[in-house]
């Protein structure tokens, strides 16, 4: 009961933060809020007892991608560009995709459902729960399935991500960016020098 309530409150936090990210014009604030979004999502995963999913979400979502987004922000401006027209077509596409995804979740088994299709197989769940520690040597069943039983699949995913990273790098190029003269930054630097002299 408490678990359900905590999950519901945290999920509503996610909705509020998502609207904040969409509506606020300052991109730096949007990046910080996206970090908090990931941390809240990770907390939900912990409450739902998916500890390693939560760990990945916290490390990748709140840690690395915040820094990546900040790095992207150094290449552009901090304020969002003024939108001159309303893009209703994009809204329609996004709403349709969201509706399709929600429709897809209707077929998923309930949370912690013992009668779901995966649990109805006579030996499968039993085998993983009882033997995985002997076979793989990892106490956590989810981790041993992810890293060992379906290890080739995970390797394939990693190759896809690696290829995407190479593609993005070859598009952006590895040249050093020319330093633009920024009056605000110059003022800060002067201020610091004065402080050191004092």
């Amino acid at each position: 009961m408490t678990e359900q309530l905590v999950i519901m409150v945290l999920l509503s936090f996610l909705v509020v933060i998502a609207f904040g990210i969409i509506l606020l014009k300052d991109l730096l604030v949007a990046v910080i809020l996206s970090g908090i979004y990931s941390l809240t999502a990770a907390a939900i995963f912990v409450v739902m007892d998916a500890v390693d999913v939560a760990f990945t979400e916290a490390a990748v979502g709140a840690g690395v991608s915040t820094i990546f987004l900040l790095g992207a922000l150094t290449l552009t401006r901090r304020q969002q560009k003024q939108q001159k027209h309303n893009n209703y077509f994009a809204l329609l596409v996004v709403t349709l995709t969201g509706a399709l995804l929600i429709y897809g979740t209707l077929d998923l088994p309930g949370y912690g459902d013992g009668q779901s299709i995966a649990n109805q197989h006579p030996q499968l769940a039993q085998h993983f729960l009882q033997k995985s520690e002997d076979e793989i040597g990892i106490p956590n069943v989810v981790t041993s399935v992810l890293a060992s039983y379906r290890g080739y699949d995970t390797l394939g995913e990693t190759v896809v991500v690696f290829t995407a990273a190479i593609g993005v790098l070859s598009l952006l190029g590895l040249r050093r960016r020319k330093r633009e003269e920024d009056p605000e930054l110059d003022a800060k630097r002067q201020c610091r020098q004065q402080n050191e002299e004092v």
């Binding site: 730096l28 990046v31 910080i32 970090g35 941390l39 990770a42 760990f55 916290a58 490390a59 709140a62 840690g63 915040t66 820094i67 900040l70 790095g71 922000l73 150094t74 920024d182 605000e184 930054l185 800060k188």
Partner: peptide
């Protein structure tokens, strides 16, 4: 561990805020 990760994020944001660069 989450506290550590959160701290890294905060440090990166503050660094960006001070220098406009990482």
């Amino acid at each position: 561990v989450y506290a550590l990760i959160n701290f890294i994020g905060t440090i990166a944001v503050l660094k960006f805020f001070e220098y406009d660069d990482l």
